[in-house]
Amino acid sequence: MNSDKRICIVSGYYGNGKTEFALNYAISMASKDIKIAIADLDFVNPYFRSREKEELLAKHGVRLISSNIKESGSDLPAISGEVSAVINDLSTRVVLDVGGDASGARVLGSHKNHLTQGQYDMFYVINANRPENSTAEGVINNIKEIEESARAKFTGLVNNTHLLQYTTVEDVVKGQRICTNVSEITKLPIKYIVASKIITEQLPKDLEGEILPINISIREAWM
């Protein structure tokens, strides 16, 4: 994790679990006393956005940069000016939580001047239990579409294959297989494997990528 670039862009097909990964990644960094902010650039999804988790993030010392229109009833494409500021602030790490698929990734184009190739990580989050990402071909199509509209290149893959509370070790292993196929074709390394702690403890030891045990925070307990 320490070798990751200062700027971490999280993208992928919508519903693949980008926000959950982004929140857990930022909190995990902050727990190592690393200064980090998370910028919610999602203007595609109306619900389940990282801006809803301000309290949780503050508790862990993660700064949240939300839309400049704060109300929950808004799905306006309004991105705070603070985002450019934090991208250029060399004293802090930042996670850019980008909204779903190619239309959501368009927002990155507007920050193109601040994003220099080699200066950032851009992770594609994969959940192989999502129908669009259940094959390497599907994932690669999405990767191409997003790269085109984001005008930025991915640098790594995140295996976030799950079925919510019904996730099994087999789900994660199946996702890893698809990530490996994608990796062989695209040459993108598998950077992280994400799952709840119980699942990560049972995973085979020789999988490519750092294991990031996560807590589910974006779904309410009653769901």
């Binding site: 519903g15 959940n127 239990n129 999502r130 129908p131 259940s134 799950h162 079925l163 019904y166």
Partner: peptide, 14 residues
């Protein structure tokens, strides 16, 4: 096998 879908997508697919 079960797949993970958003309500709106699932209604459309159904």
């Amino acid at each position: 096998a079960k797949i993970l879908m958003k309500g709106n997508e699932a209604i459309a697919e159904a």
